[in-house]
């Protein structure tokens, strides 16, 4: 084991020297997502600041954990899901962000936290097959649960993240009380019981965005939960799918600085730069995820038509329930075990 760590550390140390003094290294998820980030955020911001940005892809917070634990940190900034960033922060793997440097005054509340600043916004929505429901699909979570009004098969998330809130909303809990109710084992059990109620109609518990998009495309299910961007892509591809932002869950991806990052101060300044509205406004050109900075909507870059499709446009955001990262940090592992219990029944 020791040998492995030394080898890994050596390899990382070698790559670390490759990044110049006047530059930073950013790690993200790759693919079309990172391409959008690169075009809209990284490249313009690095030009404006006159620094070099080295982009890498990584395997998530477990990579950061390895780097921090071996003291050979090479990433200055990592892109992450809000939940895992929150847990990594609690674990002590991330630097606290300096919000006197990063201006989040025009951010949506809740889209930044001590260790992570929001980079893009997406929604967990309910989507339906427009052929099965030609007269309009469900308009809230109660409808999603109503198998008499909307008969048909459903798909639902196979993991606990974003799975409990809709159940409570369908059960009549007010949006503002959802996380309060969930902050006890009984509350979690209440949400899971509600899912148990629907379970006979749930054909598939999906585990990836690609999967829930394909399920709708193939007509395997008539209704599913899922991430809005995927359904837009599927619809553009000819799938008979529509969704609504009403009662959807507003979630975000964020940027964080690993503990002991080699260019921590520069990274902080870079985060301040890409959080500005003018960069954020360009993101929807490349992917249908919304900016975290509200001010971006006031710029010309986002037309009204595009804005209507984005989760974080003020009108859409107002209908949604923002994900509570702190609740996930505290309760996710417990809730996850309980959720799995339900799945295996």
């Amino acid at each position: 084991m020791t040998y492995r760590l030394i080898a890994a550390a050596t390899a990382l140390a070698l790559t670390a020297t490759a990044a110049g003094a006047d530059g930073i290294t950013i790690a993200s998820w790759g693919g079309s997502y990172q391409k959008a980030q690169s075009e809209a955020l990284f490249k313009p911001a690095s030009e404006a600041m006159g620094i070099t940005v080295k982009e890498e892809t990584y395997g998530g917070m477990s990579d950061v954990r390895l780097q921090v634990q071996t003291g050979a940190v090479t990433f200055d900034i990592v892109a992450s899901g809000s939940g895992s960033a929150s847990r990594a922060g609690a674990e002590g793997l991330l630097e606290e962000l300096d919000y006197s440097v990063i201006d989040v005054s025009t951010f949506y509340p809740g889209l930044y936290m001590p260790f992570c600043v929001g980079g893009d916004v997406f929604s967990t929505v309910y989507a339906w097959n427009t052929e099965t429901f030609p007269d309009g699909g469900p308009q809230n979570w109660a409808d999603f649960w109503d198998v008499e009004k909307f008969p048909g098969t459903r798909a639902y998330r196979g993991k606990v993240a974003g799975a409990l809130e809709p159940a409570l909303l369908a059960d009549g809990v007010a949006p503002e009380d959802v996380y309060e109710v969930l902050s006890s084992v009984e509350g979690i059990e209440r949400a899971i019981d509600k899912i148990r109620e629907l379970k006979p109609h749930i054909t598939v518990f999906w585990t990836s965005g690609a999967q829930h998009a394909q399920l709708m495309k193939d007509g395997e299910v008539d209704m599913t939960t899922g991430w809005n961007g995927r359904f837009d892509v599927a619809a553009a591809d000819g799938a008979k799918v529509a969704y609504s932002f009403n009662q959807a869950l507003l979630d975000y991806d964020c940027f964080a600085i690993p503990k002991g990052a080699p260019n921590k101060d520069l990274a902080m300044k870079f985060l301040a730069e890409i959080s500005k509205a003018e960069y954020q406004a360009n993101l929807p050109k490349y992917i249908t995820y919304g900016p975290t900075n509200k001010a971006a909507y006031e710029l010309d870059a986002i037309s009204a038509d595009v804005a209507a499709m984005l989760p974080s446009s003020p009108d859409n955001a107002a209908m949604q329930l923002p994900i509570d990262i702190e609740w996930y940090a505290e309760w996710e592992t417990i809730a996850s075990e309980m959720y799995q219990e339900m799945l295996t029944e």
């Binding site: 477990s62 993991k159 518990f205 592992t333 799995q340 295996t344």
Partner: peptide
Amino acid sequence: GGGKVIMVSMKIASNIELFV
């Protein structure tokens, strides 16, 4: 399996993701 048929290997994967 539609997410309902969970075998040990899948649980191993999800545990790596979930627990620190």
